[in-house]
Design a protein around this nucleic acid. Sequence first.
DNA 1: ACCATCTTGAACCAAGCAGTTCAAGATGGT
DNA 2: ACCATCTTGAACTGCTTGGTTCAAGATGGT
Lengths: 211, 211
Amino acid sequence: MVCTTKAEQGGGGMAGKKRFDVSAALDAAMIQFWRAGYADTSVDDLSRATGLNRSSIYSSLGDKDALFLRCLERYTTRYGDKYDAALSCAADRPLAAVRAFFDITLERIADPGLPDGCLVAQTVMATPVLSAGVAARAREAIGFQHTRLRAALRAGRLPEEAAESFATHLAAVNQSLAVMSRAGTSAERLRAVVDVALDALARTLGASPAL
Amino acid sequence: MVCTTKAEQGGGGMAGKKRFDVSAALDAAMIQFWRAGYADTSVDDLSRATGLNRSSIYSSLGDKDALFLRCLERYTTRYGDKYDAALSCAADRPLAAVRAFFDITLERIADPGLPDGCLVAQTVMATPVLSAGVAARAREAIGFQHTRLRAALRAGRLPEEAAESFATHLAAVNQSLAVMSRAGTSAERLRAVVDVALDALARTLGASPAL
DNA sequence: ACCATCTTGAACCAAGCAGTTCAAGATGGT
DNA sequence: ACCATCTTGAACTGCTTGGTTCAAGATGGT
């Protein structure tokens, strides 16, 4: 159900110069992969989710592996940009920046229109049974998260060593939200997970540099 | 390859009163599920992993879903007991207890004979596509972890509210290790993830009660 | 009115899946 | 030597998988 024009399907085979909305189709496929994972998503599932025909998926979106990679790419750049924006004020207000960082994740989880968890976390967990390219891309995404956080903490005048270990910790805590949300953990508890980490950051942030 | 007696397979069909080691077979199946997940483990994979015949699996270990549940049960009680033992000194030395708690996970990840990650985390991530019974059992396991940690922190004289939120946080951090280890994160970095959490705990532990 | 372009549904394929059944054979107890 | 008991491999069912192909039909431009 991602057609650009108003024409909708009737009885027999319908077509024409419709040129369906590829972007919307990718979003639908991404959400399907996100919810069910690679292994538990059949091409028929993707067909149903996107409203696209089986043939159309292969001709316009590639095979299952290529499509998954495109979805993963889409996911990482979309939320990667949001994470970057959230951390952009790190030099001035590092704690607020990290809080905003986690808010991106918490809001995504709270969004009823999106699956729980995180596509990257899901993909990383399935690493041993995924294609090498996909697995590598997922690992890379985790690495980017670490780099992002580390740069923000450094900008917030956290010493080298503390920035390194805190970036590792915070990236891990962020991934933990994916697991816990899938376990049905309430929004309040997820907030508690984050708040403890933020408290710890606030204390080491208030300790070394003059605020 | 989990036969009790010394007899090994030759050419034709071989059998007898062998009564293979069910415990070893369950371990092998557990590891297979643990590494590849439910969806990406076929009954043939289980047959190969356990060395048991396809028919033997169904007759002695149940169908795929029942077998998975047994493996999950095995996993949670085995490591649940270890976690309990690690936390047993919480009343006297709460910080050391929590450190020992995380050491269970870190040592498990470091064990080259075991897959990375965590069967519970893996199962929870696949919740939307698993049977209701399995999903519920995995959630329950996460809940137990929280209860365990909360009781230990209370025993360590942490105030009610702090114990609650810290238990939630620490349980989440523990799950994050599963994700990060699957992403290929080094043992040192996993240790850093834990150490930041332990530092935070040490500070709030040293703040409220007289040590 | 016509035609090139695109989409669609359905059929097809080989492979893999979970699950079941059973004759053949190996074994231990007697 | 015999027999009850157990395991095994293999075959089989019916279904789903990923992937491909193609005729039928709908559309827009001219």
